[in-house]
Design a protein around this nucleic acid. Structure first.
Lengths: 157, 157
DNA sequence: GCAAATATGTCAGCCATGTTGACATATTTT
DNA sequence: AAAATATGTCAACATGGCTGACATATTTGC
């Protein structure tokens, strides 16, 4: 046995190892890995990445979203967003409009082209979800939705 | 109304927009965003990133994993793995051992230090999952596990 | 036994997307 | 008029994906 190798130490941990839900931790990793792989393939073909996907998705879903709203949703920095947003505007996927009340704001809207992209990206993801819900049984959707909603937020506990 | 802005076009799409499961698509995004945020905070403190997390996790869970196994699990390239794996070996989190049957292989094991890190990273994730399962009800774990397992793999459908 | 296949390591370099901090502009609020 | 706010932009940097080529050790097949 090589030096430093540990097979099954149950030491010094506040929590016993087997109290950890490794199964769901790993399933979440694999599920998300494959969930993102479908749109990634489409995005490759138009020289966009996952960051563009997120922006076009949320703008399409919430027309009139401001830049500040989007930063808050995505939890990324202004500069990270600016880069991809500029590309999306320049290539005609997203329109910016000065806010009618507050003209400092830039309200964001997908163009027809942007809407079509958002749909094309969502479609394989939705199909994958539908297939997984089927496998999980007829009542699964509500349970899964509650579970996922419960995953969101600060831990605090 | 600005030029090019589209509010609600139901055109040219094979699928009607409302057949898309936007709710679960977004819940998955938010759930995963927050699921990864807990370990990210810990990793920041020791100059590691998400890539190190994944490696130390799977090696800890499957002691004796080979490099090829790991590449297959993570679906990244040899070079991407080599970078973080080298750092983990150099800093004493992971040991490499020549395979007993096939000496070309490098079997990977966490050290005691690596095991402790893997546990520390898994613990807040597991707590978050437990909390979400509670919110989803007593029978939710099996349903969620089946759903997530159903999300894995090629779409093909 | 030797050639081919295999497992791994490594080099050089590229790209996407995250980060920080500073500063400019327009606009609204006080 | 001054301060606060929403956004844009610049320069620079880090992480972690990627490619393709090539080196080494070892095992396998003829």
């Amino acid at each position: 046995m090589p030096a430093g190798v540990t097979i099954n130490p149950l030491t010094s941990s506040a929590l016993e190892d087997d109290a950890i839900d490794f199964e769901l931790i790993e399933l979440l990793f694999f599920a998300y890995r494959d969930f993102t792989s479908d749109p990634d393939q489409i995005l490759d073909g138009i020289d966009f990445g996952r960051a563009h996907h997120r922006v076009v998705h949320f703008v399409d879903r919430q027309p009139g979203l401001t830049v500040a709203d989007l930063l808050d949703t995505l939890r990324i920095t202004k500069q990270s967003l600016a880069r991809v947003l500029k590309q999306l505007v320049d290539t005609g996927y997203i329109d910016q409009v000065a806010g009618p009340e507050d003209r400092r704001q830039r309200k964001l809207y997908t163009t027809e082209k942007g809407h079509r992209l958002a749909m094309a990206l969502a479609e394989p993801q939705s199909r994958r979800i539908a297939k997984a819900l089927e496998a999980a049984g007829p009542e699964s959707r509500r349970t899964v939705a509650r579970f996922l909603a419960g995953m969101v937020g600060k831990t605090s506990v």
